[in-house]
Design a protein around this nucleic acid. Structure first.
Ligand SMILES: [Mn+2]
Ligand SMILES: [Mn+2]
Ligand SMILES: [Zn+2]
Ligand SMILES: [Zn+2]
Lengths: 156, 156
DNA sequence: GCGTAATTGCAACGCTGTTGCAACTTCTGA
DNA sequence: TCAGAAGTTGCAACAGCGTTGCAATTACGC
């Protein structure tokens, strides 16, 4: 399920440089992996892909770069209901929020944008006096294909 | 922030018994801890509280009981944006879903129910043909008190 | 180019959660 | 009521994800 390619490549590098963050060879590589990914990637996947481009990169550097990007609000973290293990997944922080649906049977991840969700955020900011920085909506259930199938692998 | 006490105590025991699950001394203890909690508890907190009632209980039993409850859809898992460590938190699966707001500055957790969210779920089930079993909404930002305060501890 | 401050890689570590297994407990049904 | 099968427990060892300390290396403003 390819995600929409909403951002020009190199955007993460530019964004970090504009904030005075030093740019190393390793960071450029890791950023390009995250930026060009068509799915949500976990740290191990990011490492594998980064090593194809620059074999010396260490997993510690991947973790530190992810933390850097989170601190700057440039990537979002998901756990996709931890349907497989305790991994976390990363994606570019999108212009507009989207929700994640995870099929507990086949593992497929769907994404969904909704005006109703934008209104919900507005309601929260107003009613709770809460200033929203980041949102994370993960919904578990059965996708269209698996709906109706009987074998229940549910573990959430 | 005390959660609403929506269920009678002993409900989890009854629910599991009615599904043919064996009831042990250890399980009763762990279930009562989860059932009477006024906040979201992580596994280590559940273990500590359970040991006050029955010192022999092992952490493995806590983890196995949590997994049992998740499998039966009787507790929900949260990570509250992993604002502190990689812990996961547990709460009784509520009658009606609610959202979680986590203040990235003071760590306070707010809960919020909303008809808008119920409508959003309806939209998802219709538009995506997705049958919802569980939802998890975690929103990070500044609570009313911390809004306006300057020191930014943001790490999400 | 120089110097300082940031970043990297490596090794060791910490913490959350899982697994294998023998001893024990629950619960059924005779 | 109690014997036996099936399920559960505690212990120890393990696995995986993520972090930390530190010396060597690199970026970048001057
Ligand atoms: Mn996404
Ligand atoms: Mn998580
Ligand atoms: Zn499916
Ligand atoms: Zn706050």
């Amino acid at each position: 399920m390819p995600l929409p390619q909403t951002e020009a490549p190199g955007r993460l590098v530019a964004e970090l440089l504009s904030r005075g963050v030093r740019m190393t060879r390793q960071r450029r590589t890791i950023l390009s992996v995250i930026e060009t990914a068509s799915q949500h990637l976990d740290a191990a996947q990011i490492l594998r892909r980064a090593r194809k481009l620059d074999p010396g990169i260490d997993r510690v550097t991947v973790y530190r770069t992810i933390r850097l990007l989170k601190r700057h609000g440039l990537v979002d973290e998901l756990d996709l209901l931890h349907l497989e293990g305790e991994k976390h997944y990363y994606e570019r922080h999108p212009q507009r929020d989207h929700l994640h649906m995870a099929c507990v049977r086949c593992g497929k991840i769907l994404e969904f944008e909704s005006d109703l969700f934008e209104r919900l955020k507005g309601q929260i900011q107003r009613d709770c006096q809460f200033h929203i920085l980041v949102t994370r909506v993960e919904i578990g259930g059965y996708c269209a294909k698996c709906r109706g199938n009987s074998t229940d692998l549910r573990s959430v």
